[in-house]
């Protein structure tokens, strides 16, 4: 019986060790060629981007990973600011869903913001940004939540009646299937009618990466 318990303990220890290794993020610049092949960045841009990553990831804890505090600090120069959108963007960057960003996650996500990235990639990323519950469609309630949160963050004041009115008109235009939600196809069509919805999806800085981080 004791031998059997020891065996189980040993098995669990091995299992935890495996899980731990699995959960650890690859740190550092492992293979710039692979990232350059799979993103819009060139090898030298990947290397320049890594310099930016090192700077951001060492702001609070120098562990070669970006946590949410460092992410906010880099964006707003303060970690105190409440931002629903910064939270959403961080969550979308965090494809491994472990609350920290490795360089690969950072580079792959920023690639979507490159001026040379396709409009389709940008439309898809922006759709996920608004699909708070990740259900594959944007609900009216999600839009209201974001409007209210972002207005509050910016100190803008609009009455509930005006907000409801704006959302009504938005759904009248976007929800062409009249099912009370905006799916990817409807989002795609809405963005094509209003390209300004993608204006924050392109970062001109990414064209000058090698100049910023030689």
């Amino acid at each position: 019986m004791v031998q059997c318990l020891d065996g189980v303990k040993h098995l669990l220890a091995v299992l935890f060790k495996c899980c731990d290794l699995e959960l650890k993020q690859p740190r550092g610049l492992e293979d710039p060629q692979v990232l350059a092949r799979e993103t819009v960045f060139s090898v030298s841009e990947v290397e320049a981007l890594y310099e930016l990553f090192k700077k951001i990831s060492s702001a609070v804890i120098d562990d070669g990973l970006i946590n949410k505090e460092e992410f906010q600090l880099a964006l707003f120069k303060t970690s105190k600011k409440e931002s629903l959108f910064a939270d959403r963007v961080f969550d979308l960057f965090d494809t491994k869903h472990n609350g920290i960003l490795g360089f690969e996650e950072f580079a792959r996500a920023l690639s979507v913001f490159h001026p040379n990235a396709s409009v389709e990639e940008k439309i898809d990323f922006s759709f996920q940004l608004y699909d708070l519950k990740q259900q594959g469609f944007i609900e009216r309630q999600e839009v209201k939540q974001m409007v209210v949160a972002t207005l509050a963050e910016s100190g803008m004041n609009l009455s509930d009646e005006i907000i409801e009115n704006i959302i009504d008109k938005t759904f009248e235009e976007a929800d062409t299937k009249h099912d009370g939600k905006i799916d990817r196809e409807e989002w795609h069509n809405l963005v094509l009618r209003h390209p300004s919805l993608l204006k924050n999806m392109t970062l001109q800085y990414l064209n000058a990466l090698r100049l910023c981080f030689p």
Partner: peptide
Amino acid sequence: PGDKSTRQMNAFQLIGMASSLDLSGFFEE
């Protein structure tokens, strides 16, 4: 502001304006 131009925006344009989400902060000192 509840001015006319704000009310004529769609909800996503309004969110974009109010959120001031811009990743260029990454590149600025």
